[in-house]
Amino acid sequence: MLNTNVLNINPETVCFIILKAKEFQAKEEVTFNEKIPDSEYEYDWSQILADHEDDLTYLEVKKVIEDLEPDQQVDLLTLMYIGRGDFDPNEWSAAHKEAKNNLAPNLTGYLLSKPLIAGYLEKGLEALGYTCQE
């Protein structure tokens, strides 16, 4: 059985990040660099960083994520993996190890480059028995 007390990050912090991700993803008129990236990884980064570096919502969520301890950042990425279906909730340890090995230097940019990140994080929290509903 899954130990639901595995989170080092406060679920309320994750809910705040989810809310800000939804706000950020809902914005219109996003423009992207015309240079064609060499890989899917570069494509994700070019999309998230195109005209977003001074976006207030982006900066707000970036500050929150950068202020997290490294183990909390790993948990955030782990929640994405669980919510995206890469790992079953009972595979928390394996997902956590994968997240630790793949922690991006700019975690905010990496996460927000995923159009469905808010849903992934919500599903990850729900798999552990948490909800963002009041």
Rank of each mutant, 00 (worst) to 15 (best):
L2F: 01
L2Q: 04
N3Y: 04
I9F: 02
N10S: 15
P11I: 09
P11R: 14
T13L: 13
T13G: 06
V14G: 03
V14K: 02
V14Y: 08
F16G: 12
F16P: 03
F16N: 13
I17W: 10
I18H: 12
I18P: 08
L19V: 08
A21Q: 06
E23R: 09
F24I: 07
Q25D: 11
A26P: 08
K27W: 04
E28Q: 15
E29L: 10
V30K: 09
V30P: 04
T31K: 10
F32A: 08
F32I: 11
N33F: 07
N33D: 13
E34Q: 12
I36F: 10
P37M: 11
D38E: 15
E40C: 12
Y41F: 14
E42G: 10
Y43T: 07
D44R: 15
W45V: 09
W45G: 00
S46T: 13
S46D: 15
I48Y: 00
L49V: 05
L49P: 01
L49E: 06
A50N: 07
D51S: 08
D54I: 06
D55V: 03
Y58I: 03
E60F: 04
E60K: 05
E60V: 00
V61Y: 01
K62R: 12
K62S: 00
K63V: 01
V64G: 00
V64Q: 06
I65P: 00
I65W: 02
E66G: 00
E69V: 00
E69T: 00
E69N: 08
Q72S: 01
Q72C: 03
Q72H: 01
L77V: 00
L79H: 07
Y81I: 05
G83E: 03
R84M: 12
F87W: 14
F87D: 02
N90A: 15
E91Q: 15
S93F: 07
A94W: 02
A95E: 11
A99N: 07
A99E: 02
K100S: 14
K100F: 11
A104E: 15
P105C: 07
P105A: 12
N106R: 11
N106G: 03
L107Q: 05
T108W: 06
G109H: 10
L111M: 13
L112F: 15
S113K: 03
S113P: 01
K114H: 11
K114Y: 14
K114S: 06
K114N: 11
P115G: 10
L116M: 12
A118W: 00
E122S: 11
K123H: 08
E126Q: 13
E126T: 08
A127G: 06
L128E: 03
Y130V: 01
T131L: 04
T131I: 02
T131W: 03
C132D: 02
Q133G: 02
E134V: 04
E134T: 09
E134C: 04
